[in-house]
Amino acid sequence: MSLTDAARTCLTSKFATFSGRARRAEYWWFSVLYMGAAAVIVGVAFAIEAPLLSVFLLPFIVPMLSVSVRRLHDTGRSGWRMLIALIPAVGPVLYLLGMTVDSTPGTNQYGPSPKTADQPVG
Rank of each mutant, 00 (worst) to 15 (best):
M1L: 12
M1W: 10
L3K: 02
D5I: 07
A6Q: 02
A6F: 00
A7E: 01
T9E: 14
T9S: 15
L11C: 11
S13R: 15
K14R: 15
A16Q: 14
A16H: 09
A16F: 14
A16Y: 14
T17C: 04
T17H: 06
F18P: 09
F18D: 04
S19R: 09
S19I: 01
R24F: 02
Y27I: 02
Y27W: 05
W28L: 10
W29A: 00
F30E: 00
S31T: 04
S31W: 00
S31K: 00
Y34I: 00
M35I: 15
M35Y: 14
G36P: 08
G36H: 06
A37F: 11
A37K: 02
A38L: 09
A38T: 09
A39F: 15
A39V: 12
I41C: 00
G43E: 07
V44Q: 03
V44G: 12
A45K: 01
A45T: 05
I48Q: 13
I48T: 13
I48L: 08
E49Q: 06
E49V: 03
A50Y: 10
P51L: 03
P51H: 06
P51Y: 04
P51M: 02
L53M: 13
L53A: 07
S54I: 06
S54H: 10
V55H: 05
V55S: 06
F56N: 00
F56I: 02
L58H: 09
P59I: 13
F60M: 08
P63G: 01
M64K: 08
L65H: 04
V67W: 00
S68Q: 11
S68G: 13
S68M: 09
V69I: 04
R71Y: 05
L72R: 11
H73F: 11
D74Y: 01
D74W: 00
G76C: 05
G76Q: 02
S78R: 08
S78F: 12
G79C: 00
R81T: 15
R81V: 15
M82K: 08
M82P: 01
L83F: 10
L83W: 04
I84K: 09
L86T: 11
I87P: 01
I87E: 07
P88A: 12
G91Y: 08
G91K: 03
P92F: 10
V93K: 09
V93M: 14
L94S: 04
Y95L: 14
L96V: 13
L97I: 15
G98T: 11
G98F: 12
M99F: 11
M99I: 10
T100I: 14
V101W: 02
S103H: 07
S103Y: 13
T104D: 03
P105I: 12
G106V: 06
T107S: 08
T107L: 02
N108K: 07
Y110A: 08
Y110S: 10
Y110V: 09
Y110M: 03
S113M: 10
K115W: 05
K115M: 09
T116H: 03
T116D: 12
A117P: 05
D118W: 10
V121I: 13
V121Y: 08
V121E: 12
